[in-house]
Amino acid sequence: MTRRVGVIRFPGTNCEFDTVDAVRVLGGEAEILWHGDSSLKNVEAIVIPGGFAHGDYLRCGAIARFSPVMEAVASFAREGGPVLGICNGFQVLTEAGLLPGALQKNVGMKFLCSMQQVEFVSTQNVLGKGSAAGDRLQIPINHFEGNYVCSPEILSRLETQEQIVLRYTDNPNGSMKDIAGVCNESGNVVGMMPHPERATSALMGSSDGAALLKSFLST
């Protein structure tokens, strides 16, 4: 069981408290780490939560990548530490080069806020413990730039190396191959557009996100 999760806060982050709360409800410890600090304070896992880091100016995640904490996150990821980017956190991880591809504006130019069904494609990553490929989950999305794109070469590598973590069963935003989440080659860094921290209790409409976070806490 991972005891201590660091949840990174940039100026403009707005899902850090939901994430801390979800981790605590699931039995982990969580603390918020400021983007301007270059230390990760010996946490055992990192979540980059949703929001609008640095106002999303230029491109979502483009400026967050230069925050001092990101260098520490990159070394932590290289050493195999578990890192999860949710929504804006996913965008930050792609801009930082820790995950392949990019997220652009949704097809149809609509901000999407809805419960969405996603399906596990690969479980060979920090979110997949206890789940099987094909498992379906109800997890909400809340984004304008969630349309996953990458080059055809990267896409075929993602498929052959089992780096597609989650796909939408009913593609809401135009993502290539219905991609909702991807991981790096070793599976310790995952990014996803849906918000598992907002689906941890039946009272929230779904508790399916708990399975992903429990897996994350146990790696």
């Binding site: 652009q104 504006k105 949704n106 097809v107 149809g108 130019m109 349309n147 794109v149 135009g174």
Partner: peptide
């Protein structure tokens, strides 16, 4: 080769 949702909407 990359879809451009803003352009398509316009």
């Amino acid at each position: 080769g990359i879809a451009n949702p803003e352009g398509s909407t316009i």
